[in-house]
Simulated assay, not measured.
Amino acid sequence: MPQTELRFDGRVAVITGGGRGLGRAYALLMASRGCKVVVNDLGGAIRGDGPDTSVAQGVVDEIVAAGGEAIANADSVATPEGGKAIIQAAIATWGRIDALIHNAGNVRYGSIRDISYDDFKSVVDVHLMGAFHVVQAAFGHMCDQNFGRIVLTSSIGGVYGNKNCVNYGISKSGMIGLNNVAALEGEEFNVKSNVIVPSAVTRMAEGIDISQYPPMDPELVAPVVAWLAHEACSVTGEMIASIAGRIARMFLAETRGVYRPSWTIEDVAAACEQFHDKGAESPKVLDFGLHGHVDHIGYSFAMAREGVDA
């Protein structure tokens, strides 16, 4: 059977960092499916220097030329005032905000030992604090209209870590906590929040040898993000990876664990291998999902009550 086309007619999306790379691909795809788009981008260099408002406007011009609706916005996500102004641009123009995709980012490399505080803070302010600023500004509107979709951007550097980018790693792992809370608080209001973990060849790949990479254009990631931003999206509180045409769910998990009524330091050392054992069969690896806070406690308490490994 032919698939029903998923469209965004009547919907309004804000895309931060929408002027280049992944954000541009998201904006063009969603606009081609009827979405009204606020293209937010400072248009600066990769470090965040030298704003250029023509970058966002160029994407808007492409959308309008193709028959779509879009406006450009150059407010900074790095301040609460900027975050509010970005969301307000959507409200003032179209009266609502249905989808928020936080994609804005900058890169300033440095190890834990050597990075300057300014370089550390600059990246955290855009990626992590920027996410909070726009989510907070949009969240009330979404809850009040009983609909919203939030897509936050993490990275394999945030999930697994990477050397010489501690600011980026902290920021991208922080998305997991923000996403979980937004998903939980939005649950009763039909506001869903998810994380995209994208990999694509953009200007952030400058200086990396990509000669052996498979095709990794931003357009391979865009349909995943568009689905997460669509009313048909069926998941919330999840991390979805998209790399070189592969889509996967990423998640935090726990081993079955070990119970004893009391422990010594030596007991912990002796049990290390056991509580690290993932086993070969479920349920030795536990995926508690969105309500993991409660389920983790309940599972652990059951072990304690029963006095044995659950």
Rank of each mutant, 00 (worst) to 15 (best):
V14Y: 02
G307I: 00
D287F: 13
A244L: 10
M142H: 00
S122M: 11
M142K: 02
L29G: 07
G237N: 03
N162V: 15
P80I: 12
F288Y: 05
V38N: 01
M216F: 06
H102M: 09
E206H: 12
H102L: 07
Q136P: 01
Q274C: 11
D217K: 11
G289H: 06
V39I: 07
A131T: 06
A85V: 01
I210G: 08
G257E: 02
I150D: 02
N103A: 06
L178A: 00
A104V: 01
D118P: 00
G50R: 15
V135R: 00
V126I: 08
N106Q: 12
A72P: 02
N146H: 12
W94E: 03
E266L: 10
L42M: 09
L252Y: 12
P80Y: 14
C35G: 09
G10V: 02
H293T: 15
S173R: 14
R47N: 15
P283W: 02
Q136Y: 12
E5Q: 14
K192F: 12
I240W: 10
L22H: 07
T255E: 01
L152W: 03
V37F: 05
D9P: 06
K84S: 09
V159K: 11
Q3I: 14
G177I: 07
S171E: 04
R108L: 04
F147D: 01
K84Q: 14
R203K: 14
E62L: 10
G169D: 07
E187W: 10
F120G: 03
L252A: 12
P51N: 10
A270C: 11
Y213L: 10
F8Y: 07
I91Q: 05
I97Q: 01
S193P: 08
A90L: 01
N103L: 06
V107T: 13
G21L: 02
A241K: 15
L6E: 15
T93E: 13
T53R: 12
I297Y: 13
L22D: 03
V166W: 04
R20F: 06
G82S: 05
Y117M: 14
V134A: 01
R249S: 12
V294N: 15
R11V: 04
A200H: 02
L29T: 01
I196Q: 03
L152M: 07
E81V: 08
A27L: 06
E188N: 13
M303I: 10
P2K: 14
P80G: 08
A92M: 09
L178G: 02
G158T: 03
T264E: 06
G257I: 00
G279H: 05
R249C: 11
G157S: 11
V64F: 11
G174Q: 08
P218H: 03
I71C: 04
G186C: 00
